[in-house]
């Protein structure tokens, strides 16, 4: 944790509360939070980023801040100048021939509105110009555009693992697309915030809504359900915070990042249902703010790795290392 975190959290909270447009986000400098000061950034650590992304999730921020933050950091690590405008991230497929990329990426956040795209292609990171966009929308109504590139000039390229430098997400033997793991972790932080905000709404609701002659909060069945939701919020929050701490500590972070996104996904499945159940019909309306959280949570659950995708990866890692090796990794 850097010394600026309390100020950072205050600034971010105030900014996000005003439903900022992209210009306001860019002017705040938050997209450069993870960029070293020497390279024109804030010099924040991964824990700082986790705190800001959690607040963004809680505020249902409708801007690609997580994407811009990760792109700026990875480009800075690779020594590539940050392009002007909005830079998003993509998990793409395709090939580079003579410095030109042909391929595509599905569901790129704000893909069509971006000025450049940092794309993971296999184990490589490519900085690409905006491709041809086919508009798509997330359940929350945010752009998730398909991008196609046909012989597009690659602006910069690097190995994902080396470009991550001391954060050490990759290791040279692995061809894991590290951007995917980092983006999954960023979503986990947003999930922790959004699910926490859903818990806040639920607690407010049961304290004020009277049925059977008393507030819902006094019904033991309701209390027990909210205890489960609170526990899921706690688990998602600890998973994303501990993964950030692992990134800050360096070393092999693959297990932590994968576990964070997978645990966050499990928390969505278990938690959203409870938040809605205790709200009754009001939580199901367009006018009540729970929908802003639910629609994002359900979309994020699929993005940058479903439960199954991360479980396959973690399971393979566990089997490859054996139970003793797994335990050594977890406790290392």
């Amino acid at each position: 944790m850097t010394a600026m975190r309390p100020d950072l959290e205050r600034t971010a909270s105030a900014l996000f509360a005003g439903a900022p447009d992209w210009t306001a986000i860019a002017e705040s400098g938050l997209p450069r939070l993870l960029v070293p000061e020497a390279a024109g950034g804030f010099g924040g650590d991964w824990g700082d980023a986790e705190a800001v992304l959690r607040l963004a999730g809680a505020a249902a921020l409708a801007q690609p801040l997580a994407e811009a933050m990760l792109a700026a950091r990875l480009l800075a690590d690779a020594g590539v100048a940050l392009p002007a405008g909005r830079v998003t991230i993509a998990i793409a497929q395709g090939r580079v021939t003579d410095g030109r990329f042909t391929g595509s990426a599905p569901a790129v956040p704000w893909g069509g509105a971006s000025d450049a795209v940092l794309a993971a292609v296999g184990g490589e990171l490519l900085l690409l110009p905006p491709g041809v966009a086919t508009p798509g929308l997330s359940p929350a109504g945010e752009p998730r555009d398909r991008l196609d590139w046909q012989g597009a000039a690659v602006l910069a390229a690097g190995r994902a693992s080396t470009s991550l430098g001391k954060s050490g997400v990759g290791d040279s033997a692995a061809s894991e697309p590290d951007l995917l793991a980092l983006a999954g972790w960023a979503r986990a932080a947003q999930v922790a915030g959004a699910l926490g905000a859903a818990l806040d709404l639920a607690v407010d609701h049961v304290n004020t809504r009277v049925q059977f002659g008393k507030p819902l909060a006094r019904q033991q069945a309701v209390q027990q359900q909210l205890a489960v939701l609170a526990s899921e919020v706690a688990a998602a929050g600890m998973a994303s915070a501990a993964a950030a701490a692992a990134l800050d500590a360096g070393g092999d972070c693959r297990l932590a990042l994968a576990a964070a996104k997978l645990r966050a996904n499990l928390a969505i499945g278990r938690g959203v249902a409870i938040a809605h159940q205790v709200h009754g019909a009001i939580g199901f309306t367009r006018d009540y703010p729970l929908q802003l959280l639910t629609r994002r949570l359900m979309g994020w659950r699929s993005e940058f790795g479903s439960e199954g995708a991360w479980a396959d990866r973690l399971g393979a890692l566990a089997v490859a290392r054996g139970s003793a090796g797994l335990w050594a990794t977890i406790t290392g």
Partner: peptide, 13 residues
């Protein structure tokens, strides 16, 4: 393998 992965994520958390 998938079940193992899911359990490992919960164990770590």
């Amino acid at each position: 393998v998938r079940v193992i992965g899911e359990l490992v994520a919960e164990l770590w958390t």
